[in-house]
């Protein structure tokens, strides 16, 4: 039987929706039993959220002041200490998971699967390569542990409705002191979270300035949407780095994605191809974004955006 350990992702208070998507991926492993591990200084509230996710059999908490911040160098030896009784160890393919899971895999001496997008069998998974321009099926050797990051855009979040047991366990592997957390500068925002929002409005280079980028925020407010940006817009300083959507930014799967003034380089498209509906607004009718858009509108965004806002009432 497969025993799957998912390393919960959180901000110290709340469980990340990315972890709920990992649960859905793990639940597709036939006959698997899912355990969520919450490493935190105060895991209580996070564990309770995790325990409610449908499909989770048990939640284990590891309380340790060292886990107030998530440092891969500190966490990885603890995960390895717990790993012995599991066949699979999953984390979300977020910057947290991509930092931690390869370190875990290397300490366990096993290869890692990045961005698992479908479960073909307990040892066989599909994943994208070349910015999603090819999909490979990979097979883990029978006697090896399966360590993977889960491409969250490929799986819906597990819903509440479960009642998993919560138990405290200890993981006391020596943790190095060679890596130290200093600070996090996060743009305080009460907007929907880009990674999990059902609607996203993104702006590109054509916005032409940070001031003009406010048009994107304004439309997003109207739609109760999260804000995203193309690499070009981030590089030009119109939007901050955590808003970047694409191969090297966030991979998202909203119900509605509105791309404004984004030409649609393949590196951007790979970040949005799982969106349910894509709307593109661009003045260049030949822009590649129109190849993937469900609804395309060719024209000047500076005229279209105010009109669109007005039409949305």
């Amino acid at each position: 039987m497969s025993k799957i350990l998912i390393i919960a992702e959180h901000d110290g208070k709340k469980l990340s929706p990315a972890s709920a998507r990992c649960v859905t991926c793990a639940a597709q492993i036939a006959g698997g039993e899912i355990t969520l591990a919450v490493f935190a200084a105060d895991p209580g509230p996070i564990a309770q959220q995790a325990a409610r996710l449908t499909g989770v059999a048990q939640v284990i908490t590891i309380t340790d002041a060292r886990h107030a911040q998530s440092l891969a160098a500190v966490l990885a030896p603890q995960v390895v200490q717990l790993a012995a009784s599991y066949t699979h160890i999953f984390g979300a393919s977020t910057t947290f998971g991509k930092d931690l899971m390869p370190r875990v895999a290397a300490l366990l001496g096993v290869p890692q699967i990045s961005d698992a997008m479908s479960v073909e069998s307990p040892t066989r998974f599909k994943r994208p390569i070349y910015a999603g321009n090819a999909i490979i099926t990979v097979e883990v050797a029978a006697n090896r542990k399966v360590v993977a990051t889960v491409r969250t855009a490929s799986f819906e979040a597990a819903l509440d409705g479960g009642a998993a047991t919560i138990s405290a366990v200890s993981a006391d592997a020596p943790a190095p002191t060679h890596t130290r957390y200093v600070s996090l500068s996060a743009a305080a925002s009460d907007r929907p979270d880009l990674q999990s929002a059902p609607r996203v409005v993104s702006g590109g280079r054509a916005l032409a300035s940070k001031e003009n980028f406010q048009l994107i925020y304004s439309l997003a407010d109207k739609l109760n949407a999260a804000v995203g940006a193309s690499r070009a817009a981030v590089d030009a300083g119109y939007a901050s780095n955590e808003l970047q959507v694409g191969q090297t930014g966030k991979i998202i799967a909203p119900e509605l994605y509105v791309a404004v003034g984004i030409s649609g380089a393949i590196q951007h498209l790979t970040g949005i191809k799982d969106a349910r509906t894509i709307v593109a607004i661009n003045k260049d009718a030949e822009a590649p974004i129109f190849e993937v858009a469900d609804f395309g509108l060719v024209g000047d965004l500076f005229q279209i955006l105010p009109a669109l806002e007005a039409a949305l009432g």
Binding site: T94, H178, Y181, L184, S240, E242, K250
Partner: peptide, 11 residues
């Protein structure tokens, strides 16, 4: 560059 913003660490 992390999902939440910019994290500073010392190694």
């Amino acid at each position: 560059e992390v999902d939440a913003g910019l994290e500073t660490i010392e190694v």
